[in-house]
Design a protein around this nucleic acid. Structure first.
Lengths: 228, 228
DNA sequence: GTCATGATATGATAATTATCATATCGTTAT
DNA sequence: ATAACGATATGATAATTATCATATCATGAC
């Protein structure tokens, strides 16, 4: 066993759920590569050839698209143990989105070829990946339909609740997005994100200290999100 | 070989791309069930348990969600050889969307269990399905981002081009959606769909005879879609 | 045939959202 | 330290879109 490989102790088992046999684990591990990124650094650039199958070990990243005029749309945010390259990966030669670190982050990159050959011999792994991809796609599609139905207040409320309930598990947290990025996520203008946040502050729903948000009235925020 | 099974001649081979061995083919085929639906009929109802893995043999169907107030949002339209149950299928117990026939349609239903056990033993099939799902998810997600960027005129133009170029392969076609459904697809009101169509007619871009649409000026329509 | 209903259609108005202008604040580069 | 820049912030205004009212038309129910 390669002494530089610490897979037995790493999260690969958790990630793939099914226990791979020693040989498969060795193949995967020997090609495994961890990379560190500082907040703001580019992890994947749209148009790059897809060679790795990567997941996020720690930190927080955004997946987004840019149009010709440079305007960006955030597709989703990935948390630790989420796949960074799941969309596109089995159907495309190249990434059709970019990935940037929102916080200092570490990715774990496996070789796409290794994964593909493993899938060929390990049906459980295949089903597991199908399940993961199905879930990610479902979530993204339903989320975009939900957001589309909401007014501006509802969209901002939705986003704050998202961070509070599914990313930070706290009523007070440090926003990992600028107001501009929040706007790019939920499809509105930066000015209106700012205005909406100010409005929530004036209504006593939020306390805002720069990027630090404290949700003072979660009930109100939730009813605004569901729409009011 | 079961004489009622005509799989050798059917499109299963095309669909799965990889040639299944006789035994696998038999398993799939013996559980195969074709169903006919008239335009307007419900094929899948949101909340139903997922038991089949089905694709569309002929016709045209819409996948959509309904909210508590009965308002609907169309997720996508499936054409022949598209999977009707691909989203959700590997991650959910129940459908979180409904499917209705837009035209008289025929579905071919395979047993989910058979597919799953085949995936276990056939890596190529697994990779093929991963590819298909990846592509569908990608398309849906990017489409929703594209539509979100457009103004009303661009959205209607986009939809008409979609039907012309990828569904009917013709400049003149019979719209399979009501104006209300068009609105539900691209996220606007019925009135504004109608108004926009009228505007295109007045500008000489379209000729409209009820549900029959003739695109008289594709260049204009395309530049409107890309936005202008 | 007549009625009821939903689809299509159009206009007037209201609500929502974006754009533009401007200002402050904090951070980084020099 | 100062300048430059981007992020945050707010107001005024314009553009976009939805809502409401109303009318016609087609279709299916009876």
């Amino acid at each position: 066993m390669d002494s530089s490989c610490t897979c037995e102790h790493c999260e690969l088992r958790e990630l793939f759920v099914v226990n791979l046999d020693e040989k498969s684990m060795d193949i995967i591990c020997s090609g495994k590569l961890e990379k560190d990124y500082l907040a703001g650094e580019t992890i994947i650039k749209e148009g790059t050839r897809i060679q790795d199958f990567s997941y996020l070990k720690s930190g927080l990243v955004k997946l987004f698209r840019s149009d010709q005029s440079g305007k960006e749309q955030i597709i989703t945010i990935a948390k630790p143990m989420d796949y960074v390259s799941l969309l596109s990966v089995f159907s495309n030669e190249r990434y059709n989105y970019s990935v940037t670190a929102l916080e200092d982050s570490v990715t774990c990159n496996l070789k796409m070829e290794d994964i593909k050959s493993l899938i060929n011999t390990n049906g459980k792994l295949a089903l597991n990946l199908l399940g993961k991809m199905s879930k990610v796609a479902d979530t993204l599609i339903l989320e975009s339909l939900e957001i589309r139905k909401k007014h501006l207040r509802g969209r901002v409320a939705y986003l704050l609740i998202y961070f509070s309930k599914t990313v930070f598990y706290a009523d007070e947290f440090e926003l990992p997005l600028t107001r501009k990025e929040m706007a790019e996520y939920v499809g509105m203008t930066t000015e209106n994100v700012i205005r909406t946040l100010s409005e929530f502050r004036r209504d006593g729903i939020l306390k805002i200290y720069g990027k630090t948000i404290h949700i003072a009235n979660m009930e109100s925020l939730q009813s605004i999100s569901e729409f009011g």
